[in-house]
Design a protein around this nucleic acid. Structure first.
Length: 192
DNA sequence: CAGAGGATCGGCT
DNA sequence: GCCGATCCTCTGG
């Protein structure tokens, strides 16, 4: 199932973060844990640019968000609400703080392993849930998703614009109106 | 150094 | 729908 797909390469990722958020839809997140493979297709993303009051990078670099200013294709992983981790793919050149939040996956491989980690029917539908399902936490902050053996991305064909729904982002209190959340309509199952 | 507030989730009313 | 959990980071004094 995954054998037809190649690794995502730096050239696949548009330099503009909003375009990158669209491009990542349909691509696959792979997690190798103790020789067990888990994978899911990206069906929901959000763009966070540096000139964006809702972005962690808006006020410049800090200890927490440093990896947002690192090379594109690396991971930015942070803890929210003291309980949940969120996975981002860093975009834009080194020195610019921007990233794409991965909000939901369609489970493809290793579903039983995900179920065992989650203990709840919803496996990868939500940024915190998918991180728990795939065992992703701050250890992966700064990880090179284009070269890692334990957490990496596979490219799939860019999705046509008519298959992508753009909506306001979820759970933010600033720049609420920007339609920078992107969902593959085929997998639109969250009602918001 | 204290305090507030999250890019969420799950259980309960 | 609402609310509590839970802890790290940033802010202001």
């Amino acid at each position: 199932m995954l054998s037809a797909l190649n690794r995502l390469e730096a050239g696949d990722l548009p330099s503009d973060t909003v375009e990158a958020a669209r491009r990542l839809l349909g691509c696959v997140v792979v997690r190798v844990l103790d020789g067990c493979v888990m994978a899911g297709r990206i069906v929901e993303t959000e763009a966070y640019r540096q000139d964006d009051p809702a972005s962690h990078s808006f006020r410049g670099p800090s200890a927490r968000n440093a990896s947002m200013f690192g090379p594109p294709g690396h991971a930015y992983v942070y803890l929210v609400y003291g309980t949940h981790h969120c996975l981002n793919v860093v975009t834009e050149p080194t020195g610019v703080g921007a990233a794409v939040l991965i909000r939901a996956l369609e489970p493809l491989v290793g579903i039983e392993a995900m179920q065992a980690r989650r203990g709840h029917p919803k496996l990868t539908d939500g940024p915190g849930r998918l991180c728990q399902a795939l065992d992703i936490d701050r250890r992966f902050d700064g990880e090179n998703l284009l070269g890692s053996e334990t957490l990496y991305l596979l490219a799939d064909a860019p999705r046509p614009a008519e298959t992508i729904l753009a909506t306001p982002r979820i759970g933010i209190s600033k720049a609420v109106e920007r339609p920078w959340r992107f969902v593959l309509v085929d997998s639109w199952r969250r009602s918001d």
